[in-house]
Design a protein around this nucleic acid. Structure first.
Lengths: 144, 144
DNA sequence: CGCAATTACATTGCGCACAAGACATTGATG
DNA sequence: CATCAATGTCTTGTGCGCAATGTAATTGCG
């Protein structure tokens, strides 16, 4: 008779915290007119521009079936361009437009909002983040 | 020029860890023939049976638009029943079938799998879980 | 050089997640 | 008791997330 109570499940804590983040970001991202997964793609490109679909997927741990429509929507919004590589036509290179690059300034205000809402110290959030990255690594390794 | 690197974002750590959990659970849940959100509904009912759709949603932080199709699939699998309350016909009462209740025994083996894969102590996972529940509370409170 | 295996991307199908709205039932109010 | 607000569920539309498949380009091996 193991303890399977919802609030004792780490998986549900992570799952529900993830949804809470998405909801928290929603009004912030409304300023940019993008969804949370679209924002993650922008974050990736702000860190390193001109990436292939696969390269973005490697960083976000998402596959092309998920990313292709996300990137097409960002293209439709005029925030990125998608062009076939001339050297290897299998690659689609995704680049920030001027407008997409400019949005970074708005996003720079977000971390402070998280910090404020969390009612935690920067150090606490930092160790939480590192614990999650470690857990993710072990779960992914054990899955493969 | 704030630091917006992906690996420094707590939101992405939570988001990607959540997906890692879903992937990790997938082969375990294949024994039961259910998806992860369906499993969460079962967890809720194992803890307290005969709940309305809203009551399940309160516990899982999901709305009826999400839960209705999930519960219908569990019904189609023969794991739960859905019947209108006789005292208040607005409520749909969800109950475990014998088969749905029996699956709890299989699920009791899951926490150990998580613990093993995590390469963490039970105490570490416990404090991680509590930190996430606290963060979730503060984010949700600040959203509302 | 020729052809099979690989790589990269897109597409399709299914199952969430959520907003918005429709609909029926119930409870509160005058 | 007649009306209106509130409640609970379902439906529709949009956007992920992923498995499986399709297709084209490239690589590598004999």
């Amino acid at each position: 008779m193991k303890d399977l109570r919802l609030d004792r499940q780490l998986c549900f804590a992570v799952y529900s915290a993830s949804h809470a983040f998405t909801r928290f970001y929603k009004p912030l991202l409304a300023q940019l007119g993008v969804t949370y997964p679209q924002y993650l793609a922008l974050l990736t490109l702000w860190e390193e521009d001109s990436l292939s679909v696969t390269a973005i997927g490697d960083r976000l741990l998402l596959d092309s079936g998920t990313l292709t429509p996300v990137l097409k929507r960002l293209e439709a919004l005029g925030l990125v361009s998608r062009t076939r590589s001339t050297t290897d036509e299998r690659h689609v290179i995704v680049r920030l437009t001027e407008q997409g690059a400019a949005m970074r300034h708005v996003a720079e205000g977000f971390p402070t909002r998280i910090l404020d809402a969390s009612e935690c110290s920067e150090e606490e959030l930092d160790s939480l983040r590192q614990a999650l990255l470690g857990l993710r690594k072990n779960l992914n390794h054990s899955t493969a």
